[in-house]
């Protein structure tokens, strides 16, 4: 699979969880890339995605920044 195809797969997985209402809860970054933990605020159910492409890492990071800004606004 090309790097781009791999990115599309990772992006779809992230989008799928976000659309279902999951929030990013923790990120572990190591030699394998990033492991992104998601949590659902309602039932506390958890999912983890392994993101291995550079564009995938940019993508979930952008979503995280958006999430931080919205939760900050909500907290205010």
């Amino acid at each position: 699979m090309s790097e781009y195809q791999q990115f599309l797969v990772e992006r779809n997985k992230v989008d799928f969880l976000i659309q279902k209402g999951y929030l990013i809860n923790n990120i572990l970054e190591n030699l394998n890339g990033s492991y992104v933990d998601f949590i659902h605020p309602n039932d506390q159910s958890k999912e983890t995605l392994h993101i291995s492409t550079a564009n995938g890492r940019k993508y979930f990071s952008s979503i995280l920044i958006k999430q931080n800004t919205t939760s900050y606004i909500k907290n205010e």
């Binding site: 809860n25 990120i27 990071s61 931080n68």
Partner: peptide, 14 residues
């Protein structure tokens, strides 16, 4: 999104 902003966001989540 800059690298610095990204790292700040990751730190905030942690």
């Amino acid at each position: 999104m800059t690298w610095n902003e990204r790292q700040a966001a990751l730190n905030l989540v942690a």
